Computed example of a mutant assay.
Amino acid sequence: MTSTPPRLILATRNQGKVSELRAILSDAGLPYELVGADAYPDVPDVKETGVTFAENALLKAHALALATGLPAIADDSGLCVDVLGGAPGIFSARWAGRHGDDKANLDLLLAQLADIADGHRAAHFACAAALALPDGTEAVVEGRLTGTLRHAPAGSGGFGYDPILQPLGETRTCAEMTAAEKNAISHRGQAFRALIPAIRDLLG
């Protein structure tokens, strides 16, 4: 009789992100059932009151671990635009005022950068990935994907600001890549691959 693998909860209800993280973590051969926070609908969403990506990732991971009694991993990520002093940054998901409205966020950012020449459109995606255990043990790491911003969206893959960030050395945006291509270089891929040793060490 096959035993059920232990659960590791991904502190997000974004199905695109759940799929992406499953792919990244499954490639590492971790012996866990990876489930999104939507498997626990009674657990309230956590207010992202931190002032850094790392603080917000830890807030979400600790809250879910405490509420479920299971280990939880979370990330906080965003787009940091050089000419905007690092904004939208931690406000990336709600840049246009409503959390998770990708199109509105994209449209507003492109409007704000409309007069900015190509040579000044440098930006990077940043991601902090955190692991929290119910006993308060934690680990957090970060990843970054540097590139430039297009003047108009291109591609239908990914989510968030993927259609406008063109990674350095690439001719395509993140949204024009396959999921595997994007995961290989993405800020989130880097962060979660860097977190895998901590997952192994802390969870066995």
Rank of each mutant, 00 (worst) to 15 (best):
V43H: 07
A28E: 15
V18M: 05
D75G: 09
K103W: 09
L59F: 11
G86R: 02
L70M: 14
P71A: 05
Y161C: 06
G36R: 09
A128N: 01
G157M: 05
G86K: 06
F125W: 13
H187L: 08
N56G: 08
F192R: 00
G143P: 01
G16F: 12
V51N: 14
H120Q: 15
A67G: 07
A122T: 14
Y161H: 07
L108C: 03
R172I: 02
Y32R: 07
A111D: 14
I164E: 01
P31F: 02
P71K: 12
G85T: 10
H99F: 15
G78N: 06
G89H: 05
L131H: 07
L109N: 03
G136M: 03
L202G: 00
V46D: 00
A191I: 01
K103N: 10
V46I: 14
G50C: 10
Q166M: 14
A61Q: 02
L131F: 09
G29Q: 09
H120A: 15
L84E: 05
L30R: 08
G143H: 09
R7I: 14
G189N: 02
K103M: 05
R150Y: 01
D76I: 12
F53G: 08
K60M: 11
L109R: 09
A23D: 14
I24M: 06
R200P: 02
G89L: 10
V18H: 12
G36D: 05
P167S: 10
E138N: 10
L10A: 13
I24W: 10
A117N: 07
E181M: 06
Y32W: 15
G157S: 11
L165V: 10
Y40C: 04
G16M: 11
A28L: 06
G147N: 07
